[in-house]
Amino acid sequence: MIPALFRIDERKEEFSGTFTLGIRREGESALPRFKPGQFNMLYAFGTGEVAISLSGSPADTGVYQHTIRSQGLATQALARLQKGDAIGVRGPFGCGWPIDTVAGREVLIIAGGVGMAPLRPLLYSLRDKAHGAARVRLFYGARHPDEILYRSELERWADSLDITLTVDQGDSTWRGRVGVITQPLETADINGGKAVAFLCGPEVMMRFCIQTLLTKGLSESDIYLSMERNMKCATGLCGHCQWGPNFVCKDGPVFSYGSVRSWFNLRAL
């Protein structure tokens, strides 16, 4: 499967080392639809591909958005791309967040760091009331006020969406919470039997949040997480992203905690 040719339509520096690319397909106005939680394989010329979740609105059919943290060679090459530059894209791949489970439920969206990116399309979708969620709350923990993704957008959404932000380190301008995300989660009024949670962030953060959610009475099958493993082919053929019996690229990246608990708690799997 060869990458399709896209071009950078927009590049936004979110904070140092983390940026969002809006990309359009060369010669095509409509892109294949994606489900919140899915990912694309992005190719910067000559430096290899990297799996990056879609972070824009699923309703936006002309552009894909990707929020990328510059970390390895491939993401560093992506970081150098400017408006108009070419980029290769394969995807979308993977299963998304099970959005059909939210009707009548209390939805808890729990994000940590750049783990906010794959959850943003879900927020876009849930803002469209058609899914029938009884209540939607976002709990988002970031490192620093400057490292809150989509901050101005979240501020705009604050009147219609229940948002709890917390940072590990504040600064002189930060009037909000300082501390870890499990704290507001612990004190939040959550109806465990009615709630469904969607988590994305570092595995450590997800581990602690899961423990908190379980004490809140959520069932294991109502906790969904997005996993990160090394994805090369994205089609379940290269073997890299194996995690127990799962291929994260095709069986995930979203799993219900109930279905993966025994794997989630094994180290170095």
Binding site: R143, E186, G201, P202, M205
Partner: peptide
Amino acid sequence: TQRLQATRMQLMDIYSQQ
């Protein structure tokens, strides 16, 4: 204990890059 746990999690600086 809860505060200590939270502080330990903060110490890990899990959202840091590189």
